[in-house]
């Protein structure tokens, strides 16, 4: 099954194509802060590089975030409207799962990390052998450090800095934390989506919405704008 995967939650346009678990293309285009201008061009370029047309694509995968607010809105809208207007099944994939997939096989326990865009707040997800463990985490580094109890591979963007703060919080982890620098990958989104679509687990395209983990952000809005 040929699947096109996109993820624009991380300040890049990640576009990839997979055939089952085999990655046919995995491109990462620098985007301006908003991802909007180039995204459709980037999809077209990636398809052409792989020698494919949109007609030959059998499914769509979309990274749902968390990540850049604006980026996710663009990616999810493009993903769902592509599925709707080209009449293809679609699967939404949390970007934390995408990062964990990029690091698969490198460590039994992987913790993917994405900045929440607010000072000292991060989103994270734990994956043991590719299977999600517990709920997604949103909080500060101190709370995340408390959750890490065994050797763990941290994966994400600018990951060295997270390792430093976490070790500072909990010195016992110094030798237990490894890191892997990674951005969301379109190829990984495509592989994960293909697996889901093969199991018949497609999403209703028009219902796809970004994954915002920050309850706190919604509360920030309410408190800031509440009519007094």
């Amino acid at each position: 099954m040929i699947v096109l995967g996109i993820d624009t939650s991380g300040y890049v346009n990640a576009v990839g194509i997979s055939d089952g678990a085999k990655v046919l293309a995995d491109e990462s285009f620098p985007a301006r802060t908003d991802s909007l201008e180039q995204i459709v061009d980037n999809i077209d370029t990636t398809l052409k590089k792989a020698g494919l047309s949109l007609k030959e694509v059998e499914g769509i995968g979309v990274g749902l975030g968390p990540g850049s607010w604006t980026g996710i809105k663009v990616g999810v809208t493009v993903g769902k409207m592509l599925a709707f207007s080209a009449n293809k099944p679609v699967a939404g994939i949390p970007t934390l799962e995408v990062l964990a997939y990029v690091a698969r096989g490198k460590s039994p326990l992987v913790c993917s990390v994405i900045s929440a865009g607010i000072r000292d707040t991060i989103n994270a997800g734990f994956y043991r052998s590719g299977v999600k463990e517990g709920d997604f985490f949103t909080g500060d580094t101190k709370d995340l450090a408390a959750l890490i109890k065994e050797p763990t591979l941290l994966v994400g963007n600018n990951i060295e800095s997270y390792r430093e703060i976490i070790v500072k919080q909990k010195l016992s982890l110094e030798n237990n934390i490894n890191i892997m620098e990674a951005l969301p990958s379109g190829g990984a989104v495509a592989c994960l989506a293909a697996a889901r679509l093969n199991q018949g687990k497609s999403d209703e395209p028009l219902s796809l919405t970004p994954l915002y983990l920050k309850e706190s952000t919604a509360k920030v809005f309410v408190n800031k704008y509440k009519v007094k």
Partner: peptide
């Protein structure tokens, strides 16, 4: 509003491309 405009334009250009 920039974030609002982007949603409509993302949808429009995707439909334009796909069709």
């Amino acid at each position: 509003l920039i974030g609002c405009l982007m949603v409509g334009v993302a949808a429009a250009k995707t439909i334009s491309y796909a069709r």
